[in-house]
Design a protein around this nucleic acid. Structure first.
Length: 411
DNA sequence: GGTCATGATTGTAT
DNA sequence: ATACAATCATGACC
């Protein structure tokens, strides 16, 4: 039998050809040779079959389903030959019937439950061990950071607290400028926060939608194959893991954005402002009046910081810079030194007449002087003025020793 | 735009 | 931990 004949034989019952006709090629040719209308009928029926669903085909071929069909496989007409009959969809009718019969079999639930049990005890339990991994430390780090920066967590407190901390860490003078920067930082952080939350919400929504979809599919499938609830749980966990890896990317990029924002606001070098005139004056006054030992104590630094409206570390920086720059080029600073020496002398003269020098800004570091020398008194202005030029070198050397005051006085 | 001044940072030594 | 020295980055001035 050639292919064309075999195909037509499969369609025999639909095209009006009797089994006998199909067996006779001449008869088929005779039928095909009939008017166009008959061919059109056959084509229409073929189309109808491709549109037909499996269940419909089954219902048509096996109108009276019963468990007995499945059980009665000893019937040679049913199970004897796989290609005994073909539906339009191409699946052997026998196979479809067996499948459907199996699905409707009264023992199916019991069978599935046993199969599920076996699955859980073998495949699922083995996989389950490696699936139960601890929370990702990377995610935990990102979460902590976002919380600390005020991006995640409570809306108001965290964000402003972090912003305040950032502003404080910037160490800028607490002027109006700092206020503007603070609010600017807060606004940008809020923007990042908003984007983060809206993206997070999107991800969560997509995750739950997808999870529901998969769960429905699995439930649907559990009617035709054994799927245990544990298996569904596992699938959900897998989905959540996949989505959490996407979330991690979001968190990572948010952290990066916050870091960039922070560095932009906290990079003091970018925000360097010269101290105001009064602050510089106070610092210089202290420096030149303690030229023999220009190392303010912690208390002195605090007091200077207060007076100048700057931070203690800024005072330290200033003295560090001043010492090194003075030492490097004493000649350049000579004029300045003389100026402040005179100023200090005038101040001291006016104050000493009525008040103790203990409270003057020139004395707060008396506690830090070396035990090998008498307590440091304000350097007499005459020292700076009357010293001959070569003593600058000496003074420079003396800057390296804490026992310089006494020696300098002698010089 | 070039130059200098100056506050801050970094690496090293003590 | 602190100081020093070198360096960076920015502001101010010309």
């Amino acid at each position: 039998m050639d292919d064309q004949t075999r195909m037509l034989a499969g369609l025999a019952g639909l095209g009006g050809l009797s089994q006998g006709d199909v067996g006779d090629p001449d008869s088929v040719r005779k039928q095909l040779g009939q008017p166009q209308q008959d061919i059109g009928d056959i084509l229409q029926q073929i189309m109808a079959i491709t549109d037909e669903s499996l269940d419909e085909a089954q219902a048509r071929c096996w109108p009276e389903e019963s468990p007995a069909h499945w059980g009665g496989s000893d019937d040679p007409a049913e199970g004897g030959e796989a290609g005994g009959g073909t539906a339009g969809g191409g699946l052997p009718l026998n196979f479809q019937h067996r499948k459907h019969a199996l699905n409707c079999h009264r023992m199916k639930p019991a069978l599935f439950s046993v199969l599920c049990e076996i699955k859980e005890k073998t495949v699922l339990s083995i996989r389950g061990i490696q699936d139960e991994d601890p929370p990702d430390p990377q995610i935990m780090r990102l979460d902590n950071m976002l919380l600390a920066e005020g991006v995640s967590g409570p809306e108001k407190g965290g964000g402003s607290a972090a912003a305040a901390a950032a502003a404080a860490a910037a160490g800028g003078s607490p002027g109006a400028d700092g206020g503007i920067e603070h609010s600017d930082y807060r606004a940008k952080l809020a923007q990042i926060r908003q984007i983060y939350h809206s993206e997070l919400e999107k991800y969560e929504q997509a995750c739950s939608e997808f999870t529901n979809h998969v769960m429905n599919l699995l439930r649907e499938q559990s009617r035709t194959r054994p799927i245990s609830p544990k298996e569904i749980e596992r699938m959900v966990a897998i989905i959540h893991r996949k989505f959490s890896s996407i979330q991690m990317q979001l968190k990572q990029s948010t952290c990066e954005a916050v870091m960039i924002l922070r560095s932009r606001f906290l990079d003091a070098r970018r925000k360097r402002r010269n101290f105001n005139k009064q602050a510089t004056e106070v610092l210089n006054e202290y420096f030149y009046s303690h030229l023999s030992n220009p190392y303010p104590s912690e208390e002195a630094k605090e007091e200077l910081a207060k007076k100048c409206a700057i931070t203690v570390s800024q005072v330290s920086n200033w003295f560090g810079n001043k010492r090194i720059r003075y030492k490097k080029n004493i000649g350049k600073f000579q004029e300045e030194a003389n100026l402040y020496a005179v100023k200090t002398a005038v101040d001291a003269a006016s104050v000493s007449a009525q008040a103790s020098q203990a409270n003057s800004p020139a004395t707060p570091n008396s506690g830090t002087v070396c035990p090998c020398q008498p307590p440091l008194t304000p350097t007499p202005p005459s020292i700076s003025i009357t010293l001959p030029p070569h003593t600058n070198q000496l003074r420079s050397m003396l800057l390296h020793t804490h026992c310089s005051s006494y020696t300098l006085a002698e010089v």
